[in-house]
Lab assay of single mutants.
Amino acid sequence: HNGKLCKLKGIAPLQLGKCNITGWLLGNPECDSLLPARSWSYIVETPNSENGACYPGDLIDYEELREQLSSVSSLERFEIFPKESSWPNHTFNGVTVSCSHRGKSSFYRNLLWLTKKGDSYPKLTNSYVNNKGKEVLVLWGVHHPSSSDEQQSLYSNGNAYVSVASSNYNRRFTPEIAARPKVRDQHGRMNYYWTLLEPGDTIIFEATGNLIAPWYAFALSRGFESGIITSNASMHECNTKCQTPQGAINSNLPFQNIHPVTIGECPKYVRSTKLRMVTGLRNIPSIQYRGLFGAIAGFIEGGWTGMIDGWYGYHHQNEQGSGYAADQKSTQNAINGITNKVNSVIEKMNTQFTAVGKEFNNLEKRMENLNKKVDDGFLDIWTYNAELLVLLENERTLDFHDLNVKNLYEKVKSQLKNNAKEIGNGCFEFYHKCDNECMESVRNGTYDYPKYSEESKLNREKIDGVKLESMGVYQILAIYSTVASSLVLLVSLGAISFWMCSNGSLQCRICI
């Protein structure tokens, strides 16, 4: 991952900044910058967002509201009850120091605090018919004063009620008058409520006091790749198909172990950190130390980045220098085999997901714990399936590479015959000098055995068991695999060879 928040398929997220979902939807004055928000790819909250409900109280069923919003990608904020005409018999300019803005008392931008007009609070009834052709999110509140005197001074009615009804919602609220500790300079409380109004449905408000009335509502448009994440990451000019709280993932790998919460087309989250597919040879310690064997393909974004291909070729060293050249036929066979294998694994496992966190309130801790156990169970199954699949494929890959290298080895052996000696570690020792032209003939299969047989015969008789390297004779190393990324691999195959001279070296080696 890149540690950044990015656009998702070209669409920017909605960053709530210092506000949370509650503050944004109710219209906390400190969240005025969010009022123009219309569309987004996903919503970003920060872990310690401080601006929620400015007048103390709870947004009821907040967790369910977050779940609903996680599939919303755009909205239209509109005046559901026009301020100047909807409440002619009531005062609608209630403000509070708890919702101060720029040093002055204020109130929510989407709600109206209705109080008595003169000395009376006549029963009010108002309704709205949803003609938007889509779901409408309606929010309101109920004020709970701290004393009967406060109730009387604001609403005149000691036994007030609030009723809200639609086809799918029907509740009646009565204020709970009680002494409470002071929070944000208030002994009173406000509880906030919401409902989704279906197209064509009607919502009716009736009250004799204590109503925090809707002013603006939201017509919602769903987008199934949307979601809500909690993150401290910063926004950058970048684009992605998959976003996590820790950063964007741009990967076609089937798995990731970065974060379980994802938005967009994302690899499946697994616990494993070692889900690797081999593309090189079986481990040979001396070669492995030099980083030549054991190439791997990573299938977990965050564990290993991208696929690494092994390729086969020849390396030689003689009086004229040293050089490398790919054996294109065996390399292409290996590439085709690995590509098919990788595609097979991805096809089997690479279903892209959006995974969002589930919200539970403080009273639902047991449910949250149960949900976590269920999620953990599914996660263990996914991890096991992934590891088992790759384990089985790896064994076949190792066998496949062994065969490829063996074929190259036999190709060289059949040409050199007794003009060189096998020394048991995949290397041959020449009994004759071999210049670049000679080396090329070994690589392309045109090695002239009779041409060098007499010199080889004489050297075999002279050496008589002495280690060949100390006599200045020449080696050919018969097994060799270097490691390159897919891009470098293609470039390498396009070149005939490249040279690395070893000044004054008397050794001649050709490596497979």
Results as ranks from 00 to 15, higher is better:
residue 237 E to K: 00
residue 251 S to T: 13
residue 253 L to V: 05
residue 256 Q to T: 07
residue 256 Q to V: 01
residue 257 N to L: 06
residue 257 N to R: 06
residue 257 N to I: 06
residue 259 H to Y: 05
residue 263 I to H: 02
residue 270 V to I: 15
residue 272 S to M: 04
residue 279 T to G: 01
residue 280 G to W: 07
residue 281 L to W: 10
residue 282 R to Q: 05
residue 283 N to I: 11
residue 285 P to M: 01
residue 286 S to I: 10
residue 289 Y to A: 09
residue 289 Y to I: 09
residue 290 R to W: 03
residue 291 G to Y: 07
residue 299 F to G: 07
residue 300 I to W: 02
residue 301 E to V: 11
residue 317 Q to D: 06
residue 321 G to S: 10
residue 323 G to T: 11
residue 324 Y to M: 07
residue 325 A to S: 14
residue 326 A to D: 01
residue 336 N to S: 14
residue 342 V to E: 00
residue 350 N to T: 13
residue 353 F to K: 02
residue 354 T to H: 10
residue 356 V to D: 06
residue 359 E to S: 11
residue 361 N to A: 14
residue 363 L to D: 04
residue 363 L to R: 15
residue 364 E to K: 13
residue 371 N to F: 09
residue 376 D to H: 06
residue 381 I to N: 05
residue 383 T to M: 11
residue 384 Y to M: 11
residue 386 A to M: 06
residue 386 A to L: 10
residue 388 L to P: 05
residue 391 L to G: 06
residue 392 L to Y: 13
residue 395 E to W: 07
residue 398 L to N: 14
residue 399 D to Y: 07
residue 400 F to A: 03
residue 405 V to E: 08
residue 405 V to Q: 15
residue 407 N to R: 11
residue 408 L to M: 04
residue 412 V to E: 08
residue 412 V to F: 09
residue 412 V to S: 11
residue 413 K to W: 09
residue 422 E to A: 13
residue 422 E to H: 04
residue 425 N to P: 03
residue 427 C to W: 11
residue 430 F to Q: 14
residue 436 N to Y: 08
residue 436 N to S: 02
residue 437 E to T: 13
residue 441 S to I: 08
residue 445 G to L: 10
residue 447 Y to G: 04
residue 449 Y to N: 12
residue 456 S to R: 07
residue 458 L to P: 14
residue 459 N to H: 09
residue 465 G to C: 00
residue 467 K to G: 02
residue 477 L to Y: 10
residue 479 I to R: 13
residue 481 S to A: 08
residue 484 A to R: 00
residue 489 L to T: 14
residue 491 V to T: 15
residue 491 V to C: 04
residue 491 V to H: 01
residue 493 L to H: 00
residue 495 A to I: 02
residue 498 F to C: 02
residue 500 M to T: 09
residue 502 S to Q: 15
residue 502 S to D: 13
residue 505 S to Q: 15
residue 507 Q to Y: 01
residue 509 R to E: 10
